[in-house]
């Protein structure tokens, strides 16, 4: 860990100003990822701006019927919040599938969006990694890639520079719920639809998301539609708890008169960002729920998937997880 300066920010604009004045500074909130990475010499900020004293640990009703989660809400407080548990049980379930109770007590919702990949090579400064050191090469493509991406790995020239995945569970649910990320920067506030927040690696895999360096996440808006009746979050991993996802699926449905009126499917652990395809969800609309139609959606969802050896199993696993998640969400087995 390198030496760094420390600033305790009080006030969002203050924090953003501090950040803008020092481009090698970083915000710290829960610290669960950045301190880990600093101990590995992967992150080397010149300054940490402690934002934990900002008044952002809030849960507010919005006029449109949705809920605004302050960025400093901890993962645990979010998951167990009665309004979230009742209206967005998919989000609660996804959060509680991640990390450990201690980490969920520390990690914040804003920080969860910012967490970096678990790629072994990204974490180990003795090996080349395009995400950590652009241009040094990707060790995972030919290496040990069990936890790596199978979708969205190619840039516009069909070249592959990085096969890292985004490790969050929470973000998979947020993507399915079409959350909106509110950020504040030196030039004011803006809102980023969740689908546009994280990005694919392309030929700039060192950039995880579309947040600008001097912007701060202040809140995450959950739209009114929370799918409390028909949802599922399935996480497959190498042990029962306290492990990152090999594949995870968030599924959310609205059923009307026995037909699917609204569908959301998002995959975690398979790409550089939560993987969602509107065209696949469209397949399900107006259909009567059945294994067949779910299988069709699952196959479409994995279209173009490519394995790299150790992770090739994820393609089939993801399909099966999608079918299971949709089945669970519709309670098809009990219909």
């Amino acid at each position: 860990m390198n030496p760094f300066a420390y600033t305790r920010a009080e006030g969002v604009s203050n924090a953003v100003r501090e950040r803008a004045s020092e481009h090698t500074a970083k915000f710290i909130a829960g610290g669960t990822n950045i301190i880990d990475l600093m101990k590995e010499n992967v992150e080397r900020p010149s300054r940490l701006i402690d934002i934990t004293h900002l008044p952002l640990a809030t849960v507010d009703e919005m006029e449109n019927g949705g809920i605004r989660l302050g960025a400093l809400m901890t993962n645990a407080d979010t998951a167990y919040h009665p309004k979230i548990a009742e209206r967005y049980p998919l989000l609660s379930k996804a959060i509680l599938a991640g990390a450990s109770p201690q980490l969920r007590n520390m990690a914040t919702d804003g920080g969860n969006l910012m967490q970096r990949t678990r790629c072994y090579y990204f974490y180990d400064v003795a090996t080349p990694c395009n995400k950590r050191e652009p241009g040094s090469g990707c060790s995972a493509i030919e290496g040990y890639n069990r936890i790596h991406a199978i979708l969205g790995t190619r840039d516009t020239n069909q070249d592959i520079h990085c096969i890292a995945t985004h490790p969050s569970d929470m973000c998979v649910a947020l993507a399915a719920l079409e959350a909106v990320v509110n950020v504040t920067g030196p030039y004011g506030e803006r809102s980023i639809p969740f689908a546009e927040f994280h990005r694919l690696p392309g030929n700039t895999p060192h950039i995880d998301n579309t947040l600008q360096d001097d912007e701060l996440i202040t809140a995450i808006d959950l739209p009114a539609r929370g799918f409390p009746d028909h949802y599922a979050y399935i996480k497959l991993r190498d042990r029962t708890s306290y492990a990152f996802a090999l594949v995870s699926v968030a599924a959310a449905l609205e059923l009307e008169n026995g037909r699917i009126a609204e569908a959301r499917i998002t995959l975690g652990g398979v790409a550089h960002k939560p993987w969602r395809r509107l065209d696949v969800e469209a397949i399900l609309i107006d259909k009567v729920p059945s294994k067949g139609v779910f299988q069709q959606a699952a196959d479409a969802m994995l279209e173009g998937a490519q394995g790299f050896g150790h992770n090739t199993f994820k393609i089939e696993l993801a399909k099966r997880a999608i079918v299971r998640a949709l089945t669970e969400a519709t309670n098809l087995n009990s219909l």
Partner: peptide, 11 residues
């Protein structure tokens, strides 16, 4: 798990 490219344990 050893990555034999590097001879290094990665996990």
């Amino acid at each position: 798990v050893m990555d034999h490219q590097f001879g290094r344990i990665m996990n």
